[in-house]
Design a protein around this nucleic acid. Structure first.
Lengths: 341, 341
DNA sequence: CTTGCATTGAGGTAGGTACCTCAATTATAA
DNA sequence: TTATAATTGAGGTACCTACCTCAATGCAAG
């Protein structure tokens, strides 16, 4: 038995196809009584729109855009790569995916860009931008204008009614702490915490989660004040050397930004990483290699491929007026060891 | 610019629609020269079949069937639940999903069941069955007959040309070992290893991976011989009590079958689980609660929802003669702590 | 009763592909 | 050269929904 069609529905409701169409697509001039008849028939026949037919009819592709930072770390490259790859695969599913990279240091420009987007060009966007009021407002306005928006892996504060793809950074920090704590195996000492910057919301949340779990479960460990590299190599060398010198009891390092390369490279020169417990975020070619060579003990990761596909699935679902499958879109905090790469 | 259609393709190749159709659908009576012209045109125009149209045309749903064990643990319930839920969601994507549960203790019956499946009823099946030659042969024959098959999370030996969904159990065992080892924090002692049975291929592989990693990285730890509960409570109590009694230095427990409930419940009575390092497999309501209450330290899991969706995506792709996205279908070995649930 | 309006029905179109038939052309063999 | 086979083209139908127009009904107020 094939699925019920609009024709079956019309027969079941005892009305014409035209009326069924009017009800299904919320057209005017239908009496309440007729509407009820059709809705009953929908229940009875278990009618569901044939998505294939709908998609065939709208012979315009769904167009989505990822709005990402202009410059960033290796993780960003992974993301770009995933977006491109997934976009290619979805080509034959009526989905076009583009990427735009903006200078996130200029929130006004970002907000302006967002405000300039038109529903006529685009069904939806996934925005990865650091927290800032103008951007937040622009996102809310986009949503009101009917352009679907996903807050993507970002340091944004979660907005009501707007889909979010990414992990809970508080939990991610906690997880890192648990690994660091357990891997230290009861030894006492200090933990170096390195970030690119502590301005970003995600860094702050991770640090918070980290400190909380260390305090609660690992009394012998003392997290040191965050070191901020600002992505600057000489600066990183200086502050890391300085902290190492003044804290002979450092037994672990937590790199909480997604760019682990700079701090790890600096530490390679100054200390024996294999004797330190090192936990970093995000899987990149560099961090993966460091994990295999035992210089990093664990990576806390959010899978960029999952994130990209999840954002696209959500945007697609919203565009088709479907509800996304919440369970599927929950990005996991992955713990990577050299064994489960 | 809308996507290229068969009409565009015909124009580009300088042939008729009929000929394009013959080439695209491998119909006979086309000269090599013409075939080449059309294929060139496919390259040039970037033609891709419009899936919506194809799916519209075949107005029969895709029918897939999960073949699962008749009786099993909590993880099986999770799987059943996921299959049902995903099936519901895919209803409006022309996909019908069923479940059949068979008594896996009778391999001949399973093989017979598989042999009886017809392409006219079904596009494909996902089979979760323990290793056995008759079943393996039946799967291979199904595949030859054009019925798509996925080896699903199973203790099956991986067959050539047949898709597999699930984790590498050797790596899963290794991962468990790394966690156990690190969480023991340099203490010396023995590790209890509990299984439901060591007959299953997955148990064997996990044990192998576990032993290998313990031997290589944790010299102070000694994994004890596997205890097999056979799902029998009195037996479990007896053998666990016996091993506890004869090995006072047990500091860790590794439960390598997907049913952690029985051994954990037994251990709750006989020892202080919070002082032992306990690692188990698979997330279930029970194991999750034990993780939160700190009676289990870590869970090595393969996400049942991912697995189900992955199997269905693969079956769907095969049915549409597409290649599945390999990267997406790789089921991760998840490490769950109470922090990243 | 008529005018006007709200409601319903009938019937058509488009969208891209698969599959079919029948005629027309070309190539190959006898 | 003719007979036969292989190849190609032309044109149609179906799949299901969205959207359109035009006619026909029903009902109410004037």
């Amino acid at each position: 038995m094939a699925a019920a069609t609009t024709k079956d529905l019309a027969a079941a409701a005892g009305v014409s196809l035209a009326t069924v169409d009017r009800v299904l697509n919320n057209r005017p001039n239908v009496s309440e009584k007729t509407k009820a008849k059709v809705k009953d028939a929908i229940e009875k026949t278990g009618f569901v729109r044939n998505l294939a037919a709908v998609n065939l009819l709208r012979n315009r592709p769904y167009r989505f855009r990822f709005i990402l930072p202009a410059n960033g770390d290796e993780y960003l490259s992974e993301l770009l790569c995933e977006v491109e790859h997934t976009g290619k695969v979805l080509k034959n599913d009526m989905t076009e995916v583009e990427t735009v990279q903006l200078d996130m240091a200029d929130p006004i420009a970002v907000a302006n860009y967002l405000s300039g987007l038109e529903t006529s060009d685009l069904e939806g966007v996934a925005v990865m931008a650091p927290e800032s009021p103008p951007v937040r407002d622009a996102i809310a306005r986009l949503h009101e204008r009917g352009l679907h928006v996903v807050q993507f892996l970002s340091g944004q504060e979660k907005l009501d009614d707007i889909d979010f793809v990414g992990v809970n950074n508080l939990a991610a920090g906690s997880t890192a702490a648990k690994i660091v704590g357990k891997f230290c195996g009861g030894r006492k000492g200090s933990i170096m915490v390195v970030a690119e910057t502590m301005q970003a919301m995600d860094s702050i949340e991770r640090r918070l989660g980290f400190d909380r779990t260390i305090a609660r479960s690992f009394a012998g460990l003392r997290p040191l004040p965050s070191l901020e590299t600002y992505g600057n190599a000489p600066r990183a060398e200086k502050i890391i050397a300085n902290q190492l010198q003044h804290n002979a009891d450092i037994i672990a390092v937590y790199v909480l930004s997604s760019e682990a390369r700079l701090p790890i490279k600096v530490l390679q020169k100054m200390s024996n990483l294999k004797e330190l417990v090192v936990v970093a975020h995000e899987r990149t070619p560099f961090s993966e290699a460091a994990l295999v060579s035992d210089e990093i003990d664990a990576i806390i990761a959010q899978n960029p491929g999952h994130a990209v596909r999840s954002a696209l699935r959500i945007l697609r679902a919203r565009s088709e007026a479907r509800e996304p499958i919440a369970a599927q879109e929950n990005i996991r905090i992955e713990i990577l060891l050299s064994e489960n790469l």
